[in-house]
Design a protein around this nucleic acid. Sequence first.
RNA 1: GGAGAGGUCGCAUAGUGGUCUAGUGCGCCGCACUCGAAAUGCGGUGUGGGGCAACUCACCGAGGGUUCGAAUCCCUCCCUCUCCGCCA
Length: 423
Amino acid sequence: MLDRDLIRNHPDLVRSGIARKGLEAPIDAFLSVDLERRQVQTELQEKQAEMNRISKSIGMLMGQGKKEEAEAAKAQTKDLKEAISAGEGRQRDLDARLRDIELDFPNLPHDSIPNGKDENDNVVVRTWGEKPEFAEQPQPHWDVAERLGLLDLPRAAKISGSGFALYTGLGARLQRSLFSFMIDHQTSKNGYYEVYPPYLVNRASLIGTGNLPKFEEDLYKADDDLYLIPTAEVPVTNLYRDEILNGEQLTLKLAGYSGCFRREAGAAGKDTRGVLRIHQFDKVEMVKFTKPEDSYDELESLVADAESVLRALGLHYRILELCAGDIGAKGAKCYDVELWSPGVGRYLEISSCTNFEAYQARRANIRFRRAQGDKPEFVHILNGSGLACPRLFSAILETFQQPDGSILVPEALRPYLGTDRIS
RNA sequence: GGAGAGGUCGCAUAGUGGUCUAGUGCGCCGCACUCGAAAUGCGGUGUGGGGCAACUCACCGAGGGUUCGAAUCCCUCCCUCUCCGCCA
């Protein structure tokens, strides 16, 4: 959601910002419904004020025992009552329409982000490490995993369907090691407060983060009006929905491990091998709640926090600044962390670190107060993966292949995995 | 799943149809008193919307309803607590 005053007073600015993303927004519909809503409200309130006056006087007359005068006053409320009832109905309707329109608005891109149409226009801002050298072409992770008994994809397909992974033996333990290591790393090294959230959330939470109403087809829906989370971003961001935070607590940094569930609708045929794109995966997610003036500094350190995991593991990666056309509807500015995958021969996205500014905060009504007595303001919210497990799993299998076919385990993982070598 | 109790202004409480546009206490802010502080006294102290403004409207878990008038009565739902049942 955007600031209503901004849309009302600077519709062209909003229009051009959204056009930069290659998107559209119902600006004209907003303006006309908004105007009508305010007219109806003003009219309605005059009638309500009149009704309140009459009702109050009836109460006083009754108290004084003036029954007849009270009855006379009652008689004059009939038309008013009908008008109020009709006005309330109209306003309810207009409120709901305006809300629907507002929820449909994409966020505005930050001025600093590059123009561009799609992922080809993203900008590499830095790389770390180097592509590892191999005497022979390294195997892709699906071959390594099969050879070493770390994955059983046929059985995953049998028990669940295509697009699910069954990790086995040391493969299973490697998964568990990865998210244990990462959540420890983010909490102890980078200062995040650990949370472990529910995997099923209600509609209000998904509206808060911007997944609903627009992207329903990406989600798995359970009964009882609950949805499986596509990322821990959803429950963790909604921790403070409808709350006013103390400005002194900000910046608030939370990190949570969770399973993630995505239908990947529309992604059929893309990255289908191995565990590159699956319906269920594990991830550590970082979420920050900041004051508006701090959010861009916090975005830089958020990316650094995501990167620090890869550095600790010794994996080569690069950082992309997403262009306006590739950033998506919700973000104002976004960096992708892309991990080099020697077996696949491509950089693969493993984290997306985004500043949403006040976009999610407005949807979820999350505010803060600078000091006692100050007006509440919307916080800025940021999040980023720190990191996603399957692609980390695959990059480790591919990057640390040894000539004898075994995998040399990165130092940082050895205490978790209980071995320095997978063979 | 069954039975019961309950959800009121930061916290605690009062309020069971009309001076409740919600009282009181605590907390907090301002002022007074004081060298300073405590104590005391006085005043203030929620959120959102509309209006240039004076001002006004809505909100007592949520949503409907009855009524001239609802925190208060009725209906549906949500949440919390207690007991029972079931269960990892």
